Computed example of a mutant assay.
Amino acid sequence: MRHTSQSLDALRHEGDPPADAVIADLVGSGKVGEVNRILREFHGNDQPIPAGLPPAVHAFLKATDAPPEWADASRIANAHDFFVDDGMHVATVLCYGAMASCYAARVPSRVLDITHRLDQPHRRLAETCQFVVNMMAPDPFGSGGSFVPTIQKTRLIHAAVRHLVRSSPQWDEARDGVPICQEDLLGAMMIFSVHVIDGMRRLGITVTDQEAEDYYYVWRVAGAMLGIRPEIAPETLAEAREVNALLVERHLGSSPEGIELTRDLLAFYEEMIPGKAFDGIVPAMVRQVVGPEIADALQVPNPRFWTRFTTAGSRLMRRLERVEDDNRAARAVLDKAAHLLLTGSVRTLADGQRVTLDIPERLWQGWDATGAPLPRPGCPAAEPPGGTPPSP
């Protein structure tokens, strides 16, 4: 399908009906917390659907437990081989660029701000890293993998956020459409595929055309399982680049929410680096990965010394790649480093705990579905007009 501004406008008003129906049922029955407790132990593709789930959840998990029929196992395996070879670089671009690219999209940044993820960049980073680790397993959709439950729970989380944000007095649906709509999901797929490939090349990493096609392909399969209608997703990387350019033209820009999200992200990374001497390396890396247009829109600082340093680092990376290609031992070391970087990022960002993907029951932005004020976590309940505190 070749997209136009008109076709993308239509997608702004379309969510994910199967997942949205499940969340409407759970919210209506008050069973979100109960379902979260059960699904926290649901991790593997081989696990049977847990007992005790409401019928709507059970039916959803059963209907979404396999990749689409058109999925090509050989191309998915090729993407895994690419990740084994270049996972360290994929992880670098994801950590320094993917979230910033999301923040440069004005409407999705507003959703993130409303859902109060503003002060939790570590949680989003941990979830993103875990998602990619599970996706790039040897057989992500098959026996021994963990990707199918990850996708299913992520899809329900998106639906819950859609439900809650639409209830917010801060959300203007006539202006912005449905939160986490089909266009937003399509844009996220572009960021985690096209932008990652481009970011790797900016860092001096060689990505062959076939590697790029296969990496995009596995994201297209994942996108279908995340609720993106298959007919709206570009079939080839070239078509994806056309759609990405149109999405950038429509949505890339500066917003107070995006700037604040980026500022908190940079501060979080700088806190992970001991001392102050290397603080400039974080914004320099972000600028190198996302490019000047996105970096400037997000007001990412441009430390000249570290910018020159990262540029030189790109040239060094090309030389290291040649060493890796020519030296089996060097390849083994770098592949191990890739594994440690991603899995270590997940453990660090999640404070050593398993990353849990919970369906949100409410938003922490001072209101509930009726407009009544809510307490922030760890704070006493605010008293709404009328004197009755909100129910949890």
Rank of each mutant, 00 (worst) to 15 (best):
R2S: 11
R2E: 15
R2T: 14
T4W: 10
S5F: 05
Q6H: 13
A10P: 00
D16F: 02
D16T: 05
P18C: 06
D25Q: 10
G28D: 08
S29T: 15
G30R: 08
G30V: 08
K31D: 12
K31M: 08
V32T: 14
G33P: 04
F42L: 10
F42G: 11
D46G: 10
I49K: 07
I49H: 04
K62E: 15
T64R: 15
A66W: 02
A66N: 07
E69S: 11
E69P: 02
W70Q: 12
S74C: 00
R75N: 06
I76Y: 00
D81G: 06
G97F: 02
A98N: 11
A104C: 09
R106L: 07
P108D: 09
D113P: 01
I114N: 13
H116G: 13
R117E: 13
L118K: 15
A126T: 02
E127A: 11
C129M: 13
Q130D: 15
F131D: 07
D139M: 04
D139G: 11
P140W: 04
V148R: 13
I151Y: 02
K153Y: 12
K153H: 13
I157G: 08
A159P: 03
L164S: 05
V165P: 07
V165T: 10
S167R: 15
P169K: 15
Q170I: 00
A174L: 05
C181I: 02
E183R: 14
L186N: 11
I191E: 00
S193E: 07
S193P: 03
V194H: 09
R202D: 01
T208A: 09
Q210Y: 03
Y217T: 15
Y217W: 12
V218A: 01
W219I: 03
R220C: 05
A222D: 10
M225V: 08
L226A: 09
L226P: 03
G227I: 03
A240C: 06
R241S: 06
E242K: 15
V243H: 01
S254R: 13
T262V: 04
Y269L: 13
P274M: 05
P274S: 06
D279G: 04
V282S: 10
P283V: 04
A284V: 10
Q288N: 11
Q288P: 00
V289L: 01
I294N: 00
A295D: 12
D296F: 01
A297W: 01
V300C: 05
N302K: 08
P303G: 07
F309L: 15
T310Y: 02
T311M: 06
R315N: 10
L316H: 03
M317G: 10
M317E: 14
R322T: 14
D325R: 15
D326G: 08
N327M: 07
R328C: 01
A330T: 07
H339L: 02
L341Q: 13
R347C: 05
L349Y: 13
D351C: 00
R362W: 04
D368Y: 05
A369L: 14
A369Q: 14
G371N: 12
G371R: 12
A372I: 01
L374F: 03
P375I: 12
R376H: 11
R376Y: 10
C379P: 00
A381D: 11
A381L: 02
P384Q: 07
P385D: 13
P390S: 15
P392T: 05
